[in-house]
């Protein structure tokens, strides 16, 4: 038990103090106008790695694994069902519910997995790591705030959190990614332009998250908690981890 956090810590330390500076140095010396783009994509991936690898090394139980898969599959279906309305997708709503009911780690995994798998239906691209990270971090944040007692199952609170996190985190990161594909650096004009151009899409996305949370938050949390209580999932983590 005591070894695992150490290995994870060492891995994170290596990433933060070795891989990130090396990447920045490489970007600065070799890539001139592309350095911000390259460094930000690399840091995104480095941030996701400890999450994913610590889950991998924990040897999760079959029930945990398949529960995360089911929720991701549901959010992929939801995205496919509304594909004709741009940016109108329930992924963030389902990821937030997953984070609240199953904890921050599962929330992150559901988000990242939904982003990755849904792009097998909608096409992979340079946006995939950004989407994985944005959805993942929204789920993580929802679970984290829930554990701290800030976010509860109250529908109004959930909707405010869903709308804000979709607009600020997802919208902000995706705008950053599109700004970095077409501009050499942190030019203010370009950022404001992509941000303004993105506002309608981000608003639709935020509104869709609020709408979905309004309608499915209650039935879904009820069912997830029911299944958790019925089969004793995710509760006996400490007793079964040895």
């Amino acid at each position: 038990m005591s070894k695992k956090p150490d290995r994870r810590l060492i891995f994170s330390v290596v990433l933060i103090f070795l891989a990130i500076p090396l990447t920045i140095a490489f970007g600065m010396s070799v890539l001139h106008d592309r350095r911000y783009y390259f460094v930000s994509v690399a840091i995104l991936i480095y941030t996701m790695l400890p999450f994913l690898l610590s889950f991998e090394h924990r040897r999760p139980k079959a029930r945990e694994v398949i529960l995360i898969c089911s929720l991701s599959a549901i959010s992929v279906i939801g995205r496919a069902a509304f594909f004709m309305i741009p940016e109108f997708k329930p992924v963030a709503a389902i990821v937030i519910i997953a984070g609240i009911c199953l904890g921050p780690e599962s929330g992150f995994l559901v988000g990242a997995l939904s982003g990755f798998v849904s792009n097998f239906f909608f096409g992979q691209g340079a946006w995939t790591p950004w989407q994985m990270f944005s959805f993942g971090i929204i789920g993580f944040l929802a679970g984290f705030l829930h554990q701290r007692g800030i976010l509860n199952e109250n529908r109004a609170v959930l909707c405010v959190f869903g709308g804000l996190s979709t607009f600020v985190i997802y919208g902000g990161l995706m705008n950053l990614s599109s700004a970095l594909t077409v501009s050499p650096g942190f030019g203010q004009d370009v950022f404001w332009a992509t941000f303004l151009a993105g506002i309608p899409f981000d608003l639709v996305h935020a509104a869709s998250t609020v709408i979905f949370l309004l309608f499915i938050a209650k039935p879904m949390t009820e069912r997830l908690i029911r299944i958790r209580v019925k089969y004793g999932l995710m509760e006996d983590k400490d007793s079964s981890a040895q």
């Binding site: 690898l53 991998e56 040897r59 999760p60 898969c69 599959a73 496919a80 997995l113 097998f120």
Partner: peptide
């Protein structure tokens, strides 16, 4: 990464 690959393949199948 066997577990994560399995999850990826299972999600694809569940859709």
């Amino acid at each position: 990464i066997p577990v994560l690959s399995l999850m990826f393949s299972m999600t694809l199948r569940l859709v």
